[in-house]
């Protein structure tokens, strides 16, 4: 087990090294120049040159890359060109929002997607199944911003139950009650993802239900509910768990639209805004962190398989 984790970590580091090159090269291929973002169009050539030298952008791209990697290895992701703050601090601020939002959203996805998927599968072919599958299809198809705006309209504007935008840190005044700011955004994000998990759970359950060992379980005279939970769902979850991992990673990196609708200071919006500002150090830093996140989640999913499926050998 330990050996496996070490070997996988080694492979992950190699992936990370390759990813860092790709990230760096592609970001510098984006047309545009951070200097003009900072100084505006009316800057004199002298001012431009001076700033370029100060930011180190006048050096060759290879030199810049190794300079960057050298700093990353010391835990320094550089300084934001736009904010003039350390990138690590900027990412830390965004990460709190994004990670908490992803966690709350995952709770919705698991609580809604899995049980409703089980319900649809056990009522396979009835109007309940068709209704639930139809709703799932609808939720997966509606654009996120539309769901978000309607949730704001109903629960924030009309009923006034929940705040419509922003997110003060749980470490600031209000503490954990600040999580209520994340309720509507998490529901918005959960809608399409829970729908996908629902459909996956349902399809996986229907596959497993055809297995011989389910017939064996029924022949033992145990109650149908127990057959569904212990024999069908237990095996169907094997397929769903890997989807949980990727969904979680995607919730952190791809929540741009939701973060924008609810004015949340998250990672997704940080990336998009930094790209618009050509803020190279921030883009590089965030993408590097997201790559790490995917690698870690991948590893965790693989390890969890060892516990869910005894047939899986990790060595």
């Amino acid at each position: 087990m330990l050996f496996y984790v070490l070997r996988r970590t080694g492979a992950a580091l190699a992936t990370l090294a390759a990813a860092s090159v790709v990230i760096f090269v592609f970001i510098h291929l984006i047309p545009g120049d951070p200097i003009y973002v900072l100084l505006g169009d009316e800057a004199t050539p002298e001012q431009v040159e001076a700033l370029r030298t100060r930011l180190g952008l006048d050096r060759s791209i290879v030199t810049q890359y190794f300079y960057w990697v050298g700093n990353v290895l010391q835990g320094d992701l550089g300084t934001s060109i736009f904010f003039q703050d350390p990138v690590t601090l900027i990412i830390r601020d965004g990460a709190e929002t994004s990670i908490l939002l992803a966690c709350v959203t995952m709770v919705w996805i698991v609580l809604l997607g899995v049980p409703v998927g089980v319900l649809a599968a056990t009522r396979h072919g009835t109007w309940i199944d068709q209704g639930l599958s139809g709703i799932a299809m609808l939720l997966a198809s509606i654009p996120t911003f539309w769901v978000g705006l309607y949730l704001i309209l109903i629960f924030a504007a009309n009923l006034g139950w929940l705040p419509s935008s922003g997110y003060p840190s749980i470490f600031e005044e209000g503490g954990l009650s600040n999580l209520r700011y994340l309720l509507l955004p998490s529901l918005t994000l959960a809608a399409p993802n829970a729908a996908l998990i629902l459909r996956l759970t349902r399809a996986s359950m229907l596959d497993v239900a055809k297995e011989d060992y389910v017939r064996t379980a029924r022949s033992k005279g145990i109650r149908p509910q127990r057959v569904v939970i212990r024999h069908i769902l237990r095996n169907a979850l094997l397929a769903v768990v890997s989807a949980f991992g990727f969904t979680f990673a995607a919730l952190i990196s791809e929540a741009v639209v939701t973060e924008t609708v609810f004015a949340l200071p998250g990672i997704g919006r940080l990336v998009v805004q930094s790209i618009l500002r050509r803020d190279y150090p921030v883009i590089q830093g965030v993408i590097l962190v997201i790559v790490c996140l995917y690698l870690i989640i991948n590893l965790l999913v693989d390890i969890s398989y060892r516990y869910l499926d005894p047939r899986v050998e990790l060595e």
Binding site: E211, D212, Y213, T216, R230, H231, L308, D309, P310
Partner: peptide, 8 residues
């Protein structure tokens, strides 16, 4: 081969 639950 297939008549027993593989994860129990």
């Amino acid at each position: 081969m297939t008549s027993l639950n593989p994860v129990v």
